[in-house]
Design a protein around this nucleic acid. Sequence first.
DNA 1: CATTAGCACTTGAAGGTTGAGAGTGCTAAC
DNA 2: GTTAGCACTCTCAACCTTCAAGTGCTAATG
Lengths: 354, 354
Amino acid sequence: MKMSDRKKKILQIVVDEYINTAVPVSSKSITEKHLTDVSSATVRNELASLEELGYLTQFHTSGGRVPSPQAYRFYIEELMERNDLSESDLDYIERAFNDKSRDVEHLIKSVSEVISELTDYTSVAITPHADKETIRSINLLPCGEGTALLVIMTSERILRDSFIELPENMTDDELSGASKMISQIFAGKGLAEVRDAEEEIVAEFGQYRQVMREVIEALKTYSRPREEDVVLTGADKIFNHPEYEDIENVKNFLTVISSKDKLADIIEGENDEIQINVKIGSSGDKDVPDDCSVVTATYSAGGKNLGTYGVIGPIRMDYPKVISVLENVGKALEELASGKKKDKKDSKNEQKDR
Amino acid sequence: MKMSDRKKKILQIVVDEYINTAVPVSSKSITEKHLTDVSSATVRNELASLEELGYLTQFHTSGGRVPSPQAYRFYIEELMERNDLSESDLDYIERAFNDKSRDVEHLIKSVSEVISELTDYTSVAITPHADKETIRSINLLPCGEGTALLVIMTSERILRDSFIELPENMTDDELSGASKMISQIFAGKGLAEVRDAEEEIVAEFGQYRQVMREVIEALKTYSRPREEDVVLTGADKIFNHPEYEDIENVKNFLTVISSKDKLADIIEGENDEIQINVKIGSSGDKDVPDDCSVVTATYSAGGKNLGTYGVIGPIRMDYPKVISVLENVGKALEELASGKKKDKKDSKNEQKDR
DNA sequence: CATTAGCACTTGAAGGTTGAGAGTGCTAAC
DNA sequence: GTTAGCACTCTCAACCTTCAAGTGCTAATG
């Protein structure tokens, strides 16, 4: 059955209304507030039909109707009206990113905060996956007791959280020599590439074979997002939404967000080329709770991936608002990145508008 | 009024029982399970007296009695019986710390996990405060686009999360020069000392004044614990305890733990010399929720501070278990630290037993 | 043939009643 | 000082009733 325009209109009203009020919507309320030119009986017929099509559900026969996940998807695809952010919201974004963006790790935190604050949902962010980046240089800094700090500069950022064990009696000078040598060999190679080619590389390496092996070992820890790469902000925001008066929902939610591993899986989706990605309920096979939606966006500026950001919250989410915020934050980041580069080096990035 | 031995005994029974069952305890249950040689009426008299003394409270006249915060304090001071950990728990601790303790940041995570797992409460940990440490060396690594990574080696560990902005056109060689110079001047000084002496130091510094200023600026961020220094594990564990069936309690709890700042304040107490520290309810003026207890321990080995660890949970906490776990984890850490040092350098740390 | 008025029907939420069960406080006896 | 016994209080669950909301259906209407 084809959806008539009126059906669409009614579905849109239901979703809008339910998002705003969290109360199942009745035929009467529709005719009173939005569709004053038909009677509630007519709307009832349409509602019954929409229910048959799988867009609406009722908890019990006298309780009004609630959109199904399918309805939300349709709503986002075709029905939703973008509403612009308020002046104050735009201001807030403007002021939030002045010069904090020194590196991805810091940036990610403030962006995540902004998103959570403006949307009133819990925000999750994850740094871009290091695997695809190429190594620019490798530094080994002595730090006493036979260990060294490994600092890897990649094309995109700095990785600095690994320690390696040194052979006995290695002097600082030898370490510095090894550091330079390794750096030269790895420069220009991809992180994943080095990890996988392991044996050959170590073999052709003489004196510093052990150090080399340790370095490669350390590189392996970057194949998965680390805990530090996943940022969570505003977990307590869920209590602003009535679905979380129910302890079971809170339990679900908290269980998911207390594992950074799970979080990483959830928001690190296939959203490489897609700008904004919406997962509703258990749509995917991932371990998103049935009653949650996740909206994510991957930002990049000047070819540089700036991470994936998103919100996680109830299915009854204010999608227009969330999507607006994500879009506007994205714009602001692009401007910041390209503007900054221009200031410093006269970059050739053209402004991207959508 | 002086507490008779029997009163103490009864109070102990009440606290033990309530900790285990979470159900208000009645005079009858006491005489049935523990004090079989007196009648329930006698116990009732004692209970009434204990209530008058402020150790017990009743919700309603027929609901059995519940220990007050005061009772828990007394219990911990005088009544509690330490029970040894089970073999499997000891094993678990044993296996948990093999060679993960490469540096405090990593150590803190695994220790926190162990504590949460064994106690079944949410665990919080915080790295030692950098302020008291002395600087061993300072390294500036170039990382493109006019910025440098600042790596500070202190007496205790490595701080490596700051970036500083470089003057225009500074070459890598110049940077390396500045790095060495700054390192020499700061070596041996305390972190706080350098921060506070700011102006004098900068003044007597010539060529690299701007870099210097940036370095000091960066040092300032270590005066407070950073988000990365606070680790939270097992937040979802609270649902294993019946007090958190109540949404209000969950709300309180989640609000506190979702701010790393607040968490830091809570567990970073005055427990410098005290081994184990227990805060019950709103005993202090801190922002511990009224219905929460916090038990913390600060570990050190060989004069090296290893951080503060603890659990946060309901007032009705299994103190004997928690304290045992904290003690045993502490022992294991000491052994690990001294054992390791012995392996490597034949350290002179004598084994500390208690 | 789509629309509508009208009405019976279903359901949950709120409020009240009741009885059972638990636990205490008190008193009088030992 | 201890205890048996009993009246009293309070909660909890079950049950009922009433009320309001909202629907589905039917028959009338243009």
